[in-house]
Simulated scan of single mutants.
Amino acid sequence: MKFVKRVITIIILIVIVLNAKNIAKCFYPLKYSSYIKEYSQRYDLDPYMVMAIIRTESGFKENVRSNKNAIGLMQITPDTAQWAAQKMKIDNFNEDMLDDPEFNIKMGCWYINDLKSEFNNNMNLVLAAYNGGRGNVKKWLSNLNHSYDGKNLDYIPFKETDKYVKKVKVSYKVYKYLY
């Protein structure tokens, strides 16, 4: 009887190991992949990074609002969206447009690309700015307590932003591994 239980346990473990990637894909989905691919390509972004950001921001829930009023998949605030819409030359922008997954991904990718330009493609800075604000990142870079060289962040004083950057980077690695 003990032998049979051990054999069954070993078989179950083998099945789990062989299906680990498929199980993990349930937690790291490829939703909206056509939009992500299109706008990642248009704005010169790694699509796995965009997926990691969406997973971290909204868990791929399209009609979600944060307690800070950030909207949609990529959790864009109305103020940022208004500014981005002007820069993107989008006429008749209104906040409801952020509930549309394609529009939200398009604007989010544009915004990430804008941050990439500002922060010399340094994705740690881009992620910190996406979450904590570009103005804060600039202040942190000019403070020796946060940046030893003025080009990289050695310490992020906002715990939420520090956790966010780490979480997105882990999700990014998982997406790259799985897909």
Rank of each mutant, 00 (worst) to 15 (best):
F158A: 13
K89N: 12
F119H: 10
I76R: 02
V137R: 01
S34A: 05
C26E: 15
C26L: 14
A81E: 00
L73N: 00
D100V: 05
K139P: 03
P47N: 07
N22G: 15
Y48P: 05
L153W: 04
S40V: 00
D100I: 05
E57N: 01
R65M: 06
P78E: 04
L13R: 09
L45Y: 05
A84G: 01
Y48C: 10
D154A: 00
K116I: 06
G150M: 06
I71W: 05
N124E: 15
V174C: 08
K169R: 09
V170I: 13
M97F: 04
N122V: 11
K25N: 15
Y48R: 06
S142I: 04
V64D: 09
C26D: 12
D44Y: 11
I8V: 12
Y179Q: 01
V50K: 06
Q86W: 10
Y35M: 10
K151V: 08
S147E: 04
N152W: 12
V15N: 02
K61Q: 11
E38V: 01
I156P: 03
K173W: 05
W83H: 13
V4E: 12
V168R: 01
Q75M: 09
K167A: 11
N113H: 15
S171E: 13
K68A: 15
D162N: 15
C26K: 13
F93V: 06
S117F: 07
P157H: 09
P29G: 07
T56Y: 00
R6V: 11
L73C: 04
N136C: 12
D149R: 07
Y48D: 15
N136R: 14
S66F: 09
K31R: 14
K89W: 01
F119A: 09
E62A: 14
L144Q: 14
N19L: 09
V7G: 01
T9S: 13
Y111P: 08
N124V: 11
I36K: 00
F3P: 06
V168T: 04
N69H: 13
K21T: 09
Q82R: 15
V50H: 08
D149G: 07
R42H: 08
N122M: 11
Q86K: 14
V170C: 05
D154T: 04
S40P: 00
S58R: 04
N120M: 12
E57S: 00
E62M: 12
I54T: 03
L153T: 07
N124P: 08
N94D: 12
I105K: 02
R65I: 06
D114W: 14
K176M: 09
D114E: 15
V50P: 08
A52C: 01
D44M: 10
T9V: 13
L45V: 04
I14C: 05
K138C: 08
A24T: 08
A70Q: 04
S40F: 03
I36L: 01
K139C: 02
E62Q: 14
I90Q: 03
Q41A: 13
A81G: 07
